[in-house]
Design a protein around this nucleic acid. Structure first.
Lengths: 196, 196, 196, 196
DNA sequence: GATGAATGAGTTTTCATTCAT
DNA sequence: TATGAATGAAAACTCATTCAT
């Protein structure tokens, strides 16, 4: 079996185990045997448990980011882009439950891991910030900090709503997405009208 | 030293260690020696590592919830209550960094822990839901699900904004609280006007 | 069983295993089970394999050095002191075969270990150097370096002869000691009369 | 690349690694990649790690022995031969630091290795013994054992002095050699005059 | 002849947990 | 009540060694 295929397979299994047990409780033994590979192979391919985790986050986070960016170009009317991206986001969560859980339900691991997740979050927040700062969205300019903070708040709302939705399977995906769009739109407006 | 005092002391130390290392990486040895107690005492008082963790979450989460509820009675005008509670929330985060980190930055541990944190989150969401459903806030009634989901989104926004604020110490606490209030108000309105 | 006794027992067993297998090939598992102790106890007492090794070298080397120093005071006529010390040295080797092997037959381990052994060697060489520099032994003064180098040569001669003797059990101990004394005396004289 | 060249190259790299890390800590992986050869090639050429080590010792020890023997024929006046050989010995150490370290600083490995090193030592000791027993050197005959033991002592002195010299680079090589010659000459004389 | 891919066995080390006192 | 001493179990990681190609 060629190396690239093995690597992808190992990452898949690692994702399942990390999602189920969390970083610390996950065991390399189980990942290796789950991928039907000996432990030394896992180490030969990924170097260490932490690097394996990082590789998984990188792959998953990279895909999420790519899909969000592909879903809409910034040139579109901001609210059209918003709708497209939120829809894409919920689709991603729906299709990659393990990846989603690992990405966002476990911030607390070793330093490099936390940093990498934080960076991903920051890049997603940047997408939102660009919308907040788009003059077509709100008539007013925000301070750097305000835009950044509010963007993070919006990201957190999405995470939380996505997790809630995963536990309420009877709610249609588009329904949840619609709620989120509403919240974001409102937040954008509220940000425009200087709070307080 | 009376038992209650010992217990509180141990919980304090446990909180620090859990916040610094996370649940799994934290060691009972360090907690015991940090509290200047022998390990068997920790076990006599709390039973197991997991139960100790639960006890800490219980104490911290309980205090948060109490403070949120005390900050405003539901009878107040909803937006007045909102302001009071958000302010109280940011005060809590500011004063209990360890507790806050343990409560929300580490959802992924063993099942009972996750459940307990989820329950706390649910109770906080319920506070918000009650506001969403208050006819004085929005003229319309929401479905159960809509109210619940949006409430969770709002909780997540708060968590995320609080974490962002902890990493931007130059932003005044009231500033961050004000942004959050804006977002919540907007979300309430958006929820009232059926999205889409 | 009190801690001190356990520690001594573990050190004894460790010495046997280290002597038989060398530092790297020795396994903590075997040392623990040989001492009828669980592995965590060994770690609780000594911290790590390397520290255990250092502790053993420290104990053994310390005893050797003490015995060499106690065997003769520097005030004695140098050659009388020499005889006493060489005799003591061969007695030590005879009685502590394991210790002897670990101390000198295995210089190559990790850095701190090599350093510690080198230091011991240096201290024994210093004993000899003091004799070389004693005006009663040789009429001439030696340079620092000459005294040091020759002292190390003499130490090496003793090590090598002791090892040779261990493999020739039919040679009486005093016989070997006598040869060594002769070599050392001759070396002292040769050092006094500047070579060449 | 012809096999013989490959083999020599591998041995060179192996020597460096063995000298740096010791037998056990050295890794076949590093040796193979250092020689720019795949691991299976190393095994095809040398069979096993131990055999590789033996081959290296064989090559290095063989060269040392050859140079010592070539440096002087036994017919020469014994003391002339001594001087020539000691000089050659220090030259060898100077030029083959890795080889020297492997040969003598690490006696403690597996049994066959120890045996091979012991044998080399014995052959060098034999060279010295022949001088000790040469009637031109000392008027008296020594017992077999005495000659052998003292010869080993002298070998040990040389090893130890060589190591000491490696750590004192400011001492000229010929200086160290001269000291050693003095010690050996004196030892020969002392052996002639029955000690005690 | 040469190698990429693979592994079984073993290493040190750590931890939650519990007796005997 | 309180603890020093002890451990079973498991984790991450490494290595010499060998096929299939």
């Amino acid at each position: 079996m060629p190396r690239a295929v093995r690597e992808a397979l190992i990452l898949d299994v690692a994702g399942q185990v990390f999602a189920r047990d969390g970083y610390h409780a996950a065991s390399m033994d189980e990942i290796a045997s789950g991928a039907e590979v000996s432990k030394p192979m896992v180490y030969a391919y990924f170097g260490s448990k932490e690097q394996l985790y990082l590789a998984y986050i990188d792959r998953t986070g990279g895909e999420l980011l790519e899909r969000l960016m592909a879903a809409a170009s910034d040139d579109n009317a901001p609210m059209g882009a918003l709708r497209a991206r939120v829809t894409e986001f919920f689709k991603f969560v729906d299709e990659h439950r393990d990846g989603w859980r690992v990405l966002f339900a476990e911030a607390a691991s070793s330093r490099p891991v936390a940093d990498q997740v934080a960076e991903l979050r920051g890049r997603i927040a940047a997408l939102i910030r660009r919308m907040l700062e788009d003059p077509r969205a709100s008539g007013l300019t925000l301070t750097q900090h305000a835009a950044d903070g509010i963007a993070h708040a919006i990201v957190g709302a999405g995470e939380s709503l996505a997790n809630w939705w995963l536990e309420h399977p009877d709610v249609p995906r588009d329904q949840a997405a619609a709620w989120y769009i509403g919240v974001v739109q409102a937040a954008v407006v509220s940000a425009a009208a200087p709070a307080r």
